[in-house]
Design a protein around this nucleic acid. Sequence first.
DNA 1: GCGATAAAACCGACCGGTTGGTATGTAAAG
DNA 2: CTTTACATACCAACCGGTCGGTTTTATCGC
Lengths: 235, 235
Amino acid sequence: MKSNRKANTKATRTRSRNPEATRAALVGAAVELILRQGFAATSVGQICDEAGVTKGSFFHHFDSKDAIGRAAIEWWGDFGTNLYAEAWKDAERDPLEKIGRLFAIMEGFTEHENRVCTCVVGIMSQETAQSNDELRQFACRELERWSENVGALIASAKERHCPEATFDPVALAWHLNALWQGSMLIAKTLQDPSLIRRNLSLGREWLAGFFPDDVRSRLLSSSNLNSIQTPSPNP
Amino acid sequence: MKSNRKANTKATRTRSRNPEATRAALVGAAVELILRQGFAATSVGQICDEAGVTKGSFFHHFDSKDAIGRAAIEWWGDFGTNLYAEAWKDAERDPLEKIGRLFAIMEGFTEHENRVCTCVVGIMSQETAQSNDELRQFACRELERWSENVGALIASAKERHCPEATFDPVALAWHLNALWQGSMLIAKTLQDPSLIRRNLSLGREWLAGFFPDDVRSRLLSSSNLNSIQTPSPNP
DNA sequence: GCGATAAAACCGACCGGTTGGTATGTAAAG
DNA sequence: CTTTACATACCAACCGGTCGGTTTTATCGC
């Protein structure tokens, strides 16, 4: 199980130090281990082994275990934002269509084989929200980032298609956030990723119901088949 | 922070052994601590302190830490089932009304002061689903119990009000399960229980949308104001 | 270009404390 | 007088974190 410490010495024989790469390796290992077994159950020794680095080096880059927890949350948040960015770029496109692409991306994310669909932010939230206020705030920030982005998307779709409607776009975004997090949690326990897809599909139809009949298809059309290929967090 | 070990020796001076009470105290302490700080972060020493029992006694009642984890999941599952039983008893009542009462109970559960609305099953799922198959199965069983019960309720409501409709009652139940779990998770991180109530309200309206207009009010009517008072898990 | 030098990157042994779990003893219950 | 329920003392393994030392790399006078 021990990883080979020579990962950065391969082929090119760089034989060089690379603090940024080391830091990235540590964060990557932490993300991987958190996804697999949770934060509390992961020791810094394990992170070091997985990253091919010693403990001395670890504590040179991070003050504490909590510190790498924060870094893992941030890394995951950025990873997700980049992933979703594909959906809301393109200023021309109809925001409803963008939301459809967002759903397609999420659906695509459930289809990685050999990798259960889980979320660092959800895991860290569950484990630390009540016992470590600093980590709680970091997780909170990422949850808010998601809901704000999706809320803004829904708001602009509303503005374009039914500005007179009374629903609250941000509230709908939080609803979807909870559905997404809860679906990942339950699918992990049932060992059945298809549950996420069914729930996302229901969520998509639910959201479409808030918009006029004639534009709903723009949200419902983009399937996950021709969707953007979602990258795996750690190659 | 140390609890007084004399909890069972108070006043009455029972001075007697009571294995069932000891076991219950241990499970109660475990549930409490899991809700507060998670399973991995909870040590058996802590559980013993909180229960006013020594370690020797703990390992007389439970083979391992995992064993009390299983007991905690089961206890919580039974606690929840008893809580919800209020909703689906009464064979006479319209099942749609029962579902309304179910929502009212869940909403009531978010309103305990000094106690964040969390779920042992959700916490254990998050922490152990991928690293401990036995605990995963226990959590799985409780999630299934919830969805089966709620699914049966929705199915009988469908049977009565719109047997020709095409929706899948069990799929809707899983959707609500995910919404419920995800809402508790996010509300804990945002430290804002009102998010759960907003999401439950949206969920209620969503579910009502599957039934004919003239009966929807039976699902939407029962508010959380006059609802059944939900007990706190550990008095 | 070139050494000199200091700072940054990294190593691995080590520390006190805590962990889940055990061995043994004792007292109450039946 | 045996069985069950609990207490006490203890253990090896592991935890997060420290520390002194070594190697690499960036900087700078020359």
